[in-house]
Design a protein around this nucleic acid. Structure first.
Length: 274
DNA sequence: CGGCGGTCCTGTCAGC
DNA sequence: TGCTGACAGGACCGCC
């Protein structure tokens, strides 16, 4: 479900609500998501104070006062909400409940269970299995047209799969890949090696623009995504092509097309993109 | 060895 | 109404 803008929104919302709080209790309603939870999870978390909240790629990073990090990934369908603990009845798919001092409860819900929760020592984060192969942050200054052009040259696949490859650039998922390529006027089926430097410059800007705009809108709400404060995102109303197969292209009026690439739906305008 | 298909899971919706 | 199949924001594993 969540791509970079949704994860960023969740991380920011969490920051405003949990920093400075101490974890008082942890309830596990099952033993795993995509992978088993650490066996000593309660020992690792209870009594720890939350010092900051960040994001790397599509991971939420909750930094604790013992130089460890609670690492969360939302998979396709995960959400994290903070609510009053008093009288809270766990809902279906609420897998982890973390009670904080001050009476709040952080709830991780994930119907499809593609998400992940683990704890990593801060100084081991960069070299951790989950993080060491991750590519560039698209909103960083290092993510330039030149950098993307080089990355694309070294790949041999369609440009859409390439920008969704988390070892090249992180955070771009199925929605924002389609939106970025539309904004850049590039067909998603183009081979990554044949993207020119000028196109890479344009695509870089499009990715940054679409991700920033989505963050400003609080992410996109499809189905049941909510931020940590329970709000819906608003960016979905700004989708130019995603989910609009058969509808008119907002720029030229021809019909938006839908194809499958690498097992995922792709949406594009055959007139505006080449 | 890199690219890509299959797979993990539940929920929802279209079509019959 | 109920059944079936396709599909859904991700990413890992194995096979060519």
């Amino acid at each position: 479900m969540p791509e970079l803008p949704e994860v960023e929104t969740v991380a920011r919302d969490l920051a405003g609500r949990i920093i400075g709080k101490t974890i008082r209790d942890v309830k596990l309603r099952r033993a795993d998501l995509r992978q088993p939870f650490p066996k000593n999870l309660k020992v690792l978390l209870i009594g720890r104070k939350i010092v900051s909240v960040g994001r790397r790629a599509k991971y939420v990073l909750i930094h604790l006062d013992d130089a460890s990090v609670l690492v969360l990934h939302l998979g396709m369908s995960g959400s994290i909400t903070v609510r009053q603990a008093k009288n809270y009845q766990p809902q279906k798919h609420d897998h982890v409940l973390i009670a904080l001092d001050g009476g709040n409860l952080m709830v991780m819900n994930d119907p499809r269970r593609f998400g992940l929760l683990t704890v990593v020592k801060s100084d081991e984060l960069k070299n951790h299995k989950l993080f060491r192969a991750l590519g560039m942050e698209p909103l960083s200054n290092k993510f330039t047209g030149k950098a993307l052009h080089t990355l694309l040259k070294n790949k041999n696949t369609n440009v859409k799969a390439a920008i969704m490859d988390q070892s090249l650039v992180v955070g771009v998922g199925n929605i924002y890949a389609a939106e970025s390529l539309y904004l850049a006027g590039i067909l998603p089926t183009r081979n990554s090696r044949k993207i020119t430097i000028q196109e890479a410059e344009k695509l870089t800007k499009s990715i940054k623009n679409v991700l920033c705009a989505a963050i400003e809108a609080g992410g996109s709400t499809i189905s049941d995504y909510r931020s940590a404060t329970g709000k819906s995102g608003k960016f979905q109303v700004k989708f130019q092509v995603y989910g609009r197969a058969g509808e008119k292209c907002l720029r030229c009026g021809s019909l938006v097309k839908s194809i499958r690439q690498n097992g995922r739906s792709t949406f594009y305008c055959a007139v505006c993109q080449s």
